[in-house]
């Protein structure tokens, strides 16, 4: 019961945050709503018993990604006024002929049926949320990372090392230009 309420609340937070990201006109506000959405996803992980994943979600997205995004937006001068493209889109009047409307209606129908079918399955499985036994996932994740998935683990670490070296190369002061 308690876990279900928390699950629904975090799901609502995640979905509402995502919707607000799309509909927000200000890119900085979109970033804040994205933060809300990501925290909601962390809540989903937590209520489903994946505690380590939830904490990782918090550390990586809240602590790292969002701050980097905010920095990037600010340093590239993104900001106050909504972008020009957005204005242009708003100015275009309703376009299309009966044909496009019929086609889009059919597409919407197919899409909603598919999503509905997925949703039904999710709703059927939903009652089992409370019954999941609570147990720590840290040990098993650690063991799996260095036994079964050691290759993926190492490859991703090489990828990250490459990103680090690349960043260092880009950020290094250009000595030739400095000499002139």
């Amino acid at each position: 019961m308690f876990a279900q309420i928390l699950f629904i609340l975090s799901a609502l937070l995640a979905v509402a945050g995502a919707l607000m990201v799309v509909f927000s006109r200000d890119i900085m506000h979109a970033c804040i709503y994205l933060l809300a959405s990501l925290v909601g996803v962390a809540g989903l992980y937590l209520t489903l018993g994946a505690d380590f994943l939830a904490a990782t979600q918090l550390v990586v997205y809240v602590g790292g990604v969002i701050i980097l995004m905010l920095f990037a937006i600010m340093l590239t001068g993104g900001g106050r006024e909504p972008s020009e493209k957005m204005k242009l889109l708003m100015q275009v009047p309703l376009m299309g002929s009966p044909r496009t409307y019929v086609l889009s209606f059919l597409a919407l129908l197919v899409l909603s049926l598919t999503v509905g079918k997925l949703f039904v399955r999710v709703m059927e499985g939903f009652t089992s949320v409370d019954k999941l036994p609570y147990m720590g996932t840290v040990d098993s994740i650690g063991t799996l990372l260095v036994t079964k998935h050691v290759l993926a683990f190492e490859i991703s670490s090489v990828l990250l090392l490459g990103a680090l070296v690349g960043a260092a190369v880009i950020a290094r002061p250009n000595k030739k230009r400095g000499a002139k």
Binding site: A54, A55, Q57, V59, T137, V138
Partner: peptide, 11 residues
């Protein structure tokens, strides 16, 4: 929490 100190860093 099973992930106590990690959670603390994240929050």
């Amino acid at each position: 929490l099973n992930v106590g100190i990690f959670y603390l860093l994240g929050v």
